[in-house]
Design a protein around this nucleic acid. Structure first.
Length: 598
RNA sequence: GGGGUGGUAGCUCAGUUGGUUAGAGCGCCUGCCUGUCACGUAGGAGGUCGCGGGUUCGAGUCCCGUCCAUCCCGCCA
């Protein structure tokens, strides 16, 4: 079995050649006398003709079924002008078959393979037959795109002097992060590995080891609930560098993404990317990963309502730390009652008591609350929010962070509604990259009554904020950065703490982790740092999300070869599955029934 | 753990106010057809209406429960 050409290769210049092609039967058109077969391989489609009067050859061709694997030998023939198919790259020729071998029959297909029809088929059925779904050119193209992106990243990393180092995926449990997949250790009964949720600690050790520039296409595992953009196992472009500051990291990542976009889509990304402080992102967009492709920005009216007759706003405006803010969902005044109720539900899910609004229709403000507003207040709103007919204004009066969250969600939902109504269009080839910087290092956790790391406990504070660690940890900014594209967080990282004294202080004095736990969990890191740790920092890009953005897909299941469903199952291979009692015995594991609900 | 959407033929879907034998397109099977390229054409087979229970003379349709998929919230240092 040896093919002479791929199915996208032949042109009129090849006419007269005897060729052998292999591939799958894409379609068959049996006209009774002559029979046409579109033969498809990874690269393209070529039309094969079976003429009558050649013994069993044409009969066998007539019996072919879609997606059977065949091999044909025949003569390349130029098509006559009236039979050229301009839709095919090989449409000016066809191969007149003289031999046919059926390597494997295909039984009746569970769903149509035609790209447009198949895209609509239930995803669970396509996942059960993932090998068929992937066989479609559109999906094979996504795997190719992923390969091209990985190749571009590796080329850039190599050019920048990085070496790829593999780190263990069998690590130990680190309970303060994401929930982990546990792996029992047969050789250490009763003890468990945890599948690495990121190579964070190992890559910092590589910096201590003098690697200086490390990267890895690292498989990571997190046992959290799934989303369209979250799989239990996923791939990070994991990077760590010594002797750098934040600016070096920005330039590096911009170079990687620029090269990736160029070599996959042929798109030239303008660099450097804009930067925005966390505080500004929350103030303007109500989220730490703003989609800057559209406006609908949040406006502040705290000062305006300090003496308002509307008690709800007046109280918030006079409460320290609280704000009164609004956005103008321009042109959305005709939303349905259901859509409005849905927005209210979203606001309430963020802790709002309700969602105050003003509709502007027919030159009138329709709202349950405007009767409390003075003419000055109305004028100020109208001016600052640029209110015109057809607009709807949404308010939030709450503590700063909560008000931001509420209006951030309302902003995104309003944009989705405007998009659905055809009043907002976001070009698929618009790429608004953004660095979000100067995150708080710590967040106060009300439940545990202590500070928690916003990112992870290895993030270095901004140098001038270091004194605040002892006095006001919430005000300390971290040397952390997130790279955001069109409202999607592609990755994040930080300059790390490399001084064992500072690191120990963060663990024990700020995060209040008991000393013995610090010793058992991070003792080896503190020890390592005391043996000449270089200043270092790093970042991790969500490779699946990068590829999804390149492909214009909202679900990373599309660009993972064998994805898992929302319940973490592989419907094709049927994972996870039961194991034998013997296996469990070896691991000293006993399963228990779930206790009945009280 | 919570909320939304969906589940009717192999696939995509329709199914009115609860009413006779549950339909269409594609696919499949059997013919016819020598230039198609979504070939055409004639005929045919194919249904646990996700599952369980309830209301009713009667349930694809209404009610309760449950399973599955998906989107979202919580969660994802």
């Amino acid at each position: 079995m040896k093919r002479t050409h791929l199915c996208n290769a032949l042109r009129p210049a090849d006419a007269g050649k005897t060729v052998t092609l292999v591939g799958w039967v894409d379609t068959k058109r049996d006209l009774g006398g002559v029979t046409f077969v579109d033969l498809r391989d990874r690269e393209g489609i070529t039309q094969v003709v079976f003429r009558p009067g050649q013994g069993s050859l044409q009969e066998n061709a007539q019996r072919l079924k879609s997606e059977s694997v065949i091999e044909i030998t025949g003569t390349v023939t130029a098509r006559t002008a009236d039979t050229v198919n301009p839709k095919l790259a090989t449409g000016s020729i066809e191969v007149v078959a003289s031999h046919l071998t059926v390597h494997n029959h295909c039984q009746d297909l569970p769903f149509p393979m035609d790209d447009d029809k198949a895209d609509k088929v239930n995803e669970d059925l396509r996942l059960e037959y993932r090998y068929l779904d992937l066989r479609r050119p559109r999906n094979l193209g996504l795997l190719k795109l992923r390969h091209q992106a990985a190749r571009a990243i590796r080329a850039e990393m190599d050019q920048q002097g990085f070496i790829e180092v593999e780190t263990p995926t069998l690590f130990k449990s680190t309970p303060e992060g994401a929930r982990e997949f546990l792996v029992p250790s047969r050789l250490n009964p009763g003890e468990f590995y945890a599948l690495s949720q990121s190579p964070q600690q190992y890559k910092q050790m590589l910096m201590v080891a003098g690697v200086e520039r490390y990267y890895q296409m690292a498989r990571c595992y997190r046992d959290e609930d799934l989303r369209a953009d979250r799989q239990p196992e996923f791939t990070q472009v994991d990077i760590e560098m010594s002797f750098i500051d934040r600016e070096d990291m920005y330039a590096l990542i911009e170079g990687i993404l620029k090269r990736t976009w160029k070599e996959t889509l042929g798109v030239d990304l303008p660099t450097p990317f804009p930067r925005m402080a966390y505080q500004e992102a929350m103030n303007r967009f109500g989220i730490d990963k703003p989609d800057t492709r559209f406006g609908l920005e949040i406006q502040d009216f705290t000062a305006l309502f300090k003496n308002s007759a509307f008690k709800v706003f007046q109280t918030a405006a006079n409460t320290p730390g609280s704000v009164v803010r609004a956005i103008n969902a321009k042109g959305l005044a005709d939303l349905t009652q259901g859509e409005l109720t849905n927005l209210e539900t979203i606001a309430k899910s963020q802790g709002a008591k309700g969602l105050a609004f003003i509709k502007c229709e027919g030159g009138e403000w329709k709202s349950p609350i405007t009767k409390f507003f003075s003419p000055e207040e109305k004028a100020a709103l109208e001016k600052q929010l640029n209110i015109t007919d057809g607009d709807i204004i949404f308010f939030a009066a709450a503590p700063w962070e909560q008000a931001s969250n509420i209006l951030g969600r309302i902003r995104l939902e309003s944009a989705a509604l405007l998009k659905a109504k055809g009043r907002l269009s976001l070009p698929t080839d618009q790429y608004n990259f953004l660095w979000v910087i100067e995150f708080p290092l710590m967040l106060w956790d009300e439940e545990e009554k202590r500070y928690l790391s916003a990112h992870h406990p290895f993030t270095a504070p901004v140098v001038e904020d270091e004194p605040l660690l002892a006095t006001d940890p919430a005000k300390v900014r971290g040397q952390h950065y997130d790279i955001v594209l069109n409202g999607v967080e592609l990755g994040g990282g930080s300059i790390r703490i490399h001084n064992p004294v500072v690191q120990k202080r963060v663990f024990e004095d700020v995060l209040k982790i008991p000393q013995d736990i610090v010793e058992s969990r991070f003792g080896y890191m503190l020890k390592a740092f005391s043996y000449g740790a270089p200043p270092h920092g790093g970042i991790a890009l969500g490779f699946d999300r990068v590829v999804a953005m390149l492909a214009g897909r909202s679900s990373i299941r599309d660009i993972v070869a064998f994805p898992k469903t929302q319940r973490g199952q592989d419907l094709m291979a049927q994972t996870p599955g039961a194991v034998t009692p013997k296996q469990l015995r070896e691991l000293r594991i006993r399963t228990v029934e779930e206790e009945p609900k009280a």
